[in-house]
Design a protein around this nucleic acid. Sequence first.
DNA 1: CGTACAGTTGATGATCATCAATCCCTGTGG
DNA 2: CCACAGGGATTGATGATCATCAACTGTACG
Lengths: 249, 249
Amino acid sequence: MMSTQSIRRGGGTAAPTGREPELMAIPFLKTAGTEPVELLSDAQRQQLVRSAAVRHFPARTIVYRADTAADSVFVIAEGVVKSYRDLASGRRRIAAFFFARDLFGLAEAGHYVNTVQTVTPVRAYEISFDALTELFQREPAIEMQFLCKVVHVLREAQHHSIIIGRRDAVGRLAMLLRLLQKQSLPRGRSRDIAVPMSRSDIASYLGLSLEAVSRASRRLELQGMVEFVGRHQVRILDRQRFETLAAAA
Amino acid sequence: MMSTQSIRRGGGTAAPTGREPELMAIPFLKTAGTEPVELLSDAQRQQLVRSAAVRHFPARTIVYRADTAADSVFVIAEGVVKSYRDLASGRRRIAAFFFARDLFGLAEAGHYVNTVQTVTPVRAYEISFDALTELFQREPAIEMQFLCKVVHVLREAQHHSIIIGRRDAVGRLAMLLRLLQKQSLPRGRSRDIAVPMSRSDIASYLGLSLEAVSRASRRLELQGMVEFVGRHQVRILDRQRFETLAAAA
DNA sequence: CGTACAGTTGATGATCATCAATCCCTGTGG
DNA sequence: CCACAGGGATTGATGATCATCAACTGTACG
């Protein structure tokens, strides 16, 4: 279904030679701008790649399940995953989507907290905890970069709860689209946003019903802010109003 | 920088007992149980205390404001703070409450993300970023403990968005009370829960209106699950149903 | 004892969840 | 190439829940 279409998202990434794995975040120390930057040096990437294994996952693959024994973390080279938990009520809450240059697999007392499943085909670097701690000892600077990245993920989690805290469905959807926009092209200014995940996933992420997402999409279109090009792409038509809505919080 | 008026240096008897500062979290590596544990060794605490300054804040003091220059992190020895952001709509969203043995002050590009204000009088250890990085180099094990703590805070942030994701006000309130219960006595089994913050703060944390919190409290009482003893204490009357409600998610 | 603020209670309207029916896209097989 | 099946997505109708506005009560503190 989305297999071929959604793998190639905007942003001609790749160039998988020696520049991986990448780890991107906004550092907490003062930097030039407020944009995310690559945290790892070439030397650090070389160190990392020696401790890691490259893994390939087809779309919709479970990478690991919540509450199972955890032994490694993952850095995405290419693709998108969702990190979620199925609640007692039968509802599913997606805690986060992770993209290229993101880190996931943080555990609690030796067990994964969330289930992680690929949304698109994914290429990732898997690093065992043993290798990671050994790496931290050998190259302490890398540990600081990981700390930096985790803080970044923490900020994103806080942002997520601000999204969910909104009462209006269209506002929540707009905020998600803005996230996806940043992912699509970290620097470019294209009007097109890739939406690799299903409506159902979006609903689980936004804390809405599937129908509410559908209606919110419709309303965004009717108001002339965006245009849906198929199910996995959105085009911004009125950036002004779109940004205002997404920022209103 | 820090707001000058709101900060008062230690006026009383700080006299650290030697067991401070403490830093508590559930490690991500496998441990004996799933309860939070003290992360720092005695030696590490001694190192830390040498790089830190003890600060005392009266209740309702702003420790720092969002978007101001950040230069240090804080470890709470005693007291409660709230970490929040005021949104464009005029609403306030509390991202987290922090308690004794918690860490706060993580920044983004050299600026604090949230405003932090004390709820009760607070005694805290302030550690400048400079001292912290220097400390990490001198004692690499401490960096791992900080990483561990940040991961812990990340999990709590994810849990927060699960709370907010609930649709029913009573359920959200119950989940907050359960958090406060864990804080009250990490090991004890008392029926009483301390609720140091105001209804308004609770509302901002749960993503509800102040009135909704009030009505939810009333309903919890009418259903016989809890009893409110004054405004800052709750007594569990029917733990069974209370846990069920809080866990339903 | 009075003021100010925190909290409660009530009435009304807006928004979303839910149930149900239909549409549409995609992949499959004739 | 087309028909069909199945899951994803859309649309519609109804009810439940919370926000909001407003009035009131309780409590802390001088």
